[in-house]
Design a protein around this nucleic acid. Structure first.
Lengths: 342, 342
DNA sequence: CTGAAAGCGCTTACAG
DNA sequence: CTGAAAGCGCTTACAG
């Protein structure tokens, strides 16, 4: 009887043991820095380890320990530059903790293939846990993941009343600050370019902005709120629709939409901020470029990433701790795209 | 003697076998769609599989088959939007083939931590192979990976005289097309914003552009070539330095640099394309926005991703095939940032 | 301080 | 058509 799987090709700890003249157990002990190894033995094994360029087989280790060292990240499409930024911040945190990052790109639809694939990976124990950044109210696989008690953290976009760790920006507070900024500049005819109500970030920013206006006695006509997706093209289209109302300021629920609005204004010869003030939300790199000089609300993406990864590690270490919701503060960044209303 | 590793918590094929009243071997056969299973047995096992929500343990499968189903991707920083674009294209290809994508972010330095971590992952057999997109002449870990005969593909940036699969854009050809475009528009005082000579893409584009100018009898003074990194800030700085020469056109070795040049021109009140024509290379999404309307050279990033992943699969399937170099054609995209020299 | 042995959860050659 | 068994390469409790 000879069951013959594919040989590794690479050197194993057993081979290192043979060469060193010790047991495989001892090699494992040296690798784990176990104290109970004599100095001479340790030195001998370390030399062989170095000479052979031994690297432990992760699958074997995973099989024994149950931990893969990989973290899944479900991230939004690159058409919104906020996601690459967030992905890079997450990568830095995950790498720093000595783990690997597996990525799935997702739009956050009801049966999104990225979310499904990530769920599959948790179920197959290919990853230790997942950070979802683009869930929507329709996400079906998220519910499945939670039923399996998979280690999950919702970052950026969240869902209410879910027994699950969540890390998000204080979107309402940030949007309220944006509203106060425009009010202080004397704007009264204000428009909003919003997103789908099923997306928490868009909804919270829209509501936070509208509430703050209301608190200052400003109500928006229904035609002053245009809803689209998170793209440059949607921003361009939205401005076209809003112009009939003749607003003096437009608040966009994220930067990429604001860039679209700015570009449409540019194409139509509308002066920003002279004739129209424009605001965004995110503070992506481009917002600071002279082409846009966008007044916006900064999301603390590094802190979000740091806290999100930390929460996931805690969840993996102890599945019984009660889920937490963290809201990180957003800050107003004033640039050249907003000005006093004359 | 009871050696007690961490229990999986999730259901195993052995447990499915118990419930179904068959051997674990039979469960494996059903999972593998093996023909030698009676229909009644298959139906019974499938029902239990469904009811229990069984998912195979990847580490165990990897241990047996030697394949992880994961592909590593080493990608550049998000400060250059070309990389998120390329990463998304690679993700699509990798997902489509039913595999997982592990990501490392790298600057491509001599001992870059991202490259090192990716090399580690291949050595530990955590991934089946790696696609490097940011190697430089200094990359040390790449040489180590090749010595180990790890399945490696160089995508985008390559190195010459390396026994290794490479997929890249025809950078020289694309840059030559850019040169002809400017010449046809009547430009003679032309400047170049180049990158480090150790980076193949930057070097090939610079050389291709300069050679084509030379072929048309135009030689550049040394001060007409400014070298920087691939950032918006470097583009802004470069234009400041180039202005003393009074060029009528600037070719930038990538889009992000060109955006910096355009923004510096905007900040200084220099009219584009009236006073200055500007060209880039990549054709990132933003290049088409009214804010930039950048004439540029399009990289075939989807085809690059498709071919890169295919080459890696072939390499994994058969390590003995001779390495190939694929050059994909680049195409000129004319927009509003270039005009006839008056 | 050191080693023999169990076992993580699969796949697959072999026997019936 | 079905099952018992080997073995992938580790970690770790147990014995000495």
């Amino acid at each position: 009887v000879t069951a013959g799987p594919v040989p590794s090709g690479r050197i194993t700890s057993r081979r290192v043991a043979e060469i060193s003249g010790v047991s495989q157990t001892t090699v494992s002990r040296v690798l784990a820095n176990h104290p109970n190894v004599s100095e001479t033995t340790r030195a001998r094994v370390l030399r062989v380890l170095n000479e052979t360029g031994y690297a432990p087989n992760l699958a074997a280790r995973t099989m024994r320990t149950g931990s893969t060292g990989a973290i899944g990240v479900v991230i939004g499409r690159v058409t919104n530059p906020f996601y690459p930024m967030l992905a890079e911040a997450l990568h830095q945190q995950i790498s720093q903790s000595g783990r690997t990052m597996s990525v799935w790109i997702s739009d956050g639809g009801p049966d999104d293939s990225g979310e499904l694939a990530a769920l599959s990976a948790v179920r197959e124990r290919a990853i230790d846990g997942v950070i979802y950044t683009t869930v929507t109210a329709q996400s079906r696989s998220l519910r499945a993941a939670l039923e399996l008690h998979a280690p999950v953290v919702l970052l950026n976009r969240t869902l209410t009343r879910l027994h699950c760790d969540r890390v998000a920006t204080d979107n309402r507070g940030g949007a309220a600050a944006a509203a106060r900024h425009l009010i202080e500049l004397g704007h009264r005819r204000i428009a909003v370019v919003a997103g789908p109500r099923s997306v928490s970030t868009a909804r919270e920013r829209e509501d936070g902005f509208v509430s703050e206006l209301a608190a200052h006695g400003i109500t928006l006509s229904p035609s002053a709120v245009v809803r689209g997706d998170f793209t440059h093209a949607a921003g361009r289209r939205a401005l076209g629709q809003l112009l009939t109302d003749g607003p003096t300021a437009v608040f966009c629920v994220n930067d990429i939409i604001a860039f679209g609005v700015l570009d449409e204004a540019r194409a139509r010869g509308i002066l920003v901020p002279g004739t129209l003030s424009v605001m965004g939300f995110d503070d992506t790199d481009m917002a600071a470029w002279p082409a846009f000089a966008l007044t916006t609300v900064q999301q603390p993406s590094r802190q979000m990433a740091e806290l999100g990864v930390r929460r996931l590690m805690q969840r993996i270490a102890d599945p019984s701790i009660p889920p937490r919701l963290d809201r990180l503060p957003a800050s107003l960044i004033v640039r050249g795209s907003t000005a006093r209303q004359r």
